[in-house]
Design a protein around this nucleic acid. Structure first.
Length: 363
DNA sequence: AAACCACCCAACCGCTTCGAC
DNA sequence: AGTCGAAGCGGTTGGGTGGTT
């Protein structure tokens, strides 16, 4: 037996709202408020609408100070940052953008922002592919920063085929299993990758991509990054060299999709390209949406440093991401599901991981 | 001018979570 | 602790619109 409908479907009007309906609803709410009961409201004011429909109309359209369209660059940045950090929690993202509704942001992301970012990625990728055909053979392994090349393990580049991508692995970040925020980032990235590159989701390459891309700052590393960036005029993110690349894999404690050996080298082309560029100190084309428009990889001692340009400033991005991937993200993530008594954040993280894993398997 | 196509966005649907009882 | 109705939320749909052929 299914769930009882929230209203009498046969007697409610559907479709676009008429100006008179808008006026009626707006006038009533402005004078009396919603009364805490959306279901009863339409009957009260004589509207043949479902309560849910009234609520949506008010929240997304009639409410005062609603802004429509005309998203600024700053808003774009915030949306991208938060999407990377927390995924499609549109209501939370909307809360950071005054006057914007979750529906508006969701539509904007789905119809424009995502395409804009992917389109740019693709364009750059095609452009660079052509260039690579000419330059690939000239590039020697010694040109690859030693801090980035992970030698002596399964992530070494494919030496059998000179045309395979070289060293498709990012310098892993220090990872601690005790850091639930990292897990949160990891799962967000997993979702992001699947959403953006969904067609690769079932060939194992997403795992690799996650392994690759998930070297974004975790809570601890971001704290370090912020500290280090304060000592540098340039805003940057430092990627520490790993003790072991396998430490990045969330496979033992959290039982999350182990990365299998032998799959490296079959990365989705987009991410392959992204990483490929990393190694050659070019822009990480296609991943600008994670960092900003302009940045490059430099090396310093045992660290790799991503320096941002001025179009989108990593300082801003990192501050956004760092503040949202640390405790705030946990708080934001808990916004919908506040911690119940006796449930620790760690327990929640475990629960989230398990549910994410289940969701992944469904895909 | 008409047909077709792609895009946008308001609105809907169904699931999850909350909170009162 | 369990139940149930309401609210909140994210994914999806479909009508409108503008551009192209």
């Amino acid at each position: 037996m299914g769930r009882a409908p929230c209203c009498d479907k046969a007697n409610v009007k559907k479709g676009p709202w008429a100006p008179e309906e808008d006026a009626t609803l707006k006038a009533y709410i402005e004078e009396h408020g919603t009364g805490g009961n959306w279901i009863a409201l339409p009957q009260k004011i004589g509207l043949k609408r479902c309560g849910k429909s009234c609520r949506l109309r008010w929240l997304n359209y009639l409410r005062p100070n609603i802004k429509h369209g005309g998203f600024s660059d700053e808003e774009d940045r915030i949306i991208c940052s938060l999407y990377v950090s927390i995924g499609s929690r549109w209501s939370i993202i909307a809360a950071q953008l005054p006057g914007r509704t979750d529906n508006d942001i969701k539509n904007y992301w789905n119809t424009r922002l995502k395409k804009k970012l992917l389109g740019k990625q693709r364009k750059d990728q095609i452009y660079r592919r052509k260039g690579d055909l000419l330059t690939k053979k000239a590039r020697s392994p010694s040109e690859i920063p030693s801090s980035i090349v992970v030698s002596g393990n399964e992530y070494t580049n494919n030496s059998q085929d000179p045309y395979m991508p070289e060293v498709p692995v990012m310098p892993p970040m220090p990872y601690t299993n005790q850091d639930p925020c990292f897990v949160s980032d990891h799962t967000s990235l997993r979702k992001l990758l699947i959403k953006l590159g969904g067609k690769f989701a079932d060939d194992g390459s997403v795992n690799q991509s996650i392994n690759m891309v998930s070297h974004f700052p975790s809570e601890n590393t971001l704290t370090n990054l912020q500290a280090s960036s304060q000592n540098d005029e340039n805003r940057f993110i430092a990627c520490s060299t790993p003790a072991s690349s396998s430490s990045m894999q969330l496979n033992s404690q959290y039982n999350i999709l182990p990365i299998q050996e032998g799959q490296i080298g079959t990365l989705p082309s987009a991410f392959e390209e992204m990483y490929y560029s990393t190694n050659t100190q070019q822009k990480l084309d296609g991943s600008e949406f994670l960092y900003g428009d302009m940045y490059e990889i430099n090396t310093s001692g045992s660290n790799s440093v991503i320096t941002c340009g001025d179009s989108i400033d990593w300082g801003e991005m990192s501050s956004l991401i760092s503040t949202t991937t640390t405790n705030d993200v946990m708080n934001l993530s808990n916004f919908r599901r506040p911690l119940r008594q006796g449930v620790s954040i760690q327990d929640r993280a475990y629960d989230d991981i398990n549910s994410e894993f289940v969701d992944m398997k469904k895909l």
